[in-house]
């Protein structure tokens, strides 16, 4: 890395799956919007390499993810990531914590693939040489180097999702937050994303309605009306979730 680049945030392309992580702590955190309680006094910590979050639409899953990188401020309580406050230290938190949005079209900013991967790196002050290296590495990591010069609007939904993920991974975060990553994907691309997810060295916190995606996770949290109502091994929590929503 060049001297002009910011401190390497972590992350590695050759590391074992799930070997990177951060400690994310919600301390009595609530979010109230337009008079509605979206998150209700949540106190929970995440440090496992894989955490799944399930819940019905409107239960507060996505808001919980957005709180981690300071996109939504809590009305009460606090959220910290490795001891840094998610609101006050949002920039530092966002350097080590990536976010993959549900719809890649809402995440990809630049019209060309390589330019979009460079977008986040430029924002975080990386040098041109480091940007070129990281863009190439991120594309190679997801086996999408052939898309490098393609226009975003000409890509398929699955390709866009991989490009969006490459943009996140280019920053070499320690944690990636996934907000319903497979909801726009066909079966083939869903399987591909699942394989990519399984191999990631980064910690992954995944909000999803795709219960198969979370089936092998060491921990799954169930949210209902802004509260954590179940927290445990995937098999147990998913079974309860299915049962509760027959």
């Amino acid at each position: 890395m060049s001297d002009t680049s910011p401190e390497r945030a972590g992350g590695a392309t050759g590391a074992e799956p799930g070997t990177l992580s951060q400690t994310i702590v919600f301390s009595d955190a609530s979010v109230v919007r337009s008079g509605r309680t979206v998150l209700d006094r949540i106190s929970i910590g995440f440090e496992e390499p894989r955490v799944g979050i399930v819940g019905l639409n409107g239960s507060g899953k996505s808001t919980l993810l957005k709180c981690i990188i300071g996109l939504v401020a809590p009305s009460a309580g606090a959220i910290t990531v490795d001891g840094r406050d998610a609101i006050r230290d949002a920039r530092a938190v966002r350097r080590t914590t990536g976010f993959l949005f549900q719809d890649p079209d809402n995440q990809i900013v630049m019209p060309l693939v390589a330019e979009d991967l460079a977008f986040g790196l430029k924002n975080h002050g990386f040098s041109a040489a480091e940007i070129a290296t990281r863009v190439a590495a991120a594309l190679d990591r997801l086996a999408i180097t052939h898309l490098r010069e393609r226009r975003i609007h000409e890509l398929s939904g699955g390709e866009k999702q991989l490009v969006a993920l490459a943009g996140v991974l280019a920053l070499e975060p320690r944690t990636v937050l996934f907000d319903e990553p497979t909801s726009h994907l066909d079966l083939k691309n869903r399987n591909r994303l699942r394989d990519v997810l399984q191999a990631l060295p980064e910690q992954a916190i995944v909000v999803s309605h795709d219960l198969d995606l979370l089936a092998d996770f060491p921990r799954v949290v169930m949210i209902e009306a802004g509260r954590v109502v179940r927290d445990g091994a995937a098999r147990e929590v998913i079974a309860r979730y299915r049962e509760a929503n027959r």
Binding site: I69, L71, R91, D105, N106, H124
Partner: peptide
């Protein structure tokens, strides 16, 4: 609706640039 989601994504990706 899309612009609101996009604003979140741009924030999440570290915009505005540090410099």
């Amino acid at each position: 609706v899309r612009s609101e989601a996009l604003a979140d994504a741009i924030d999440a990706r570290g915009f505005p640039p540090e410099g």
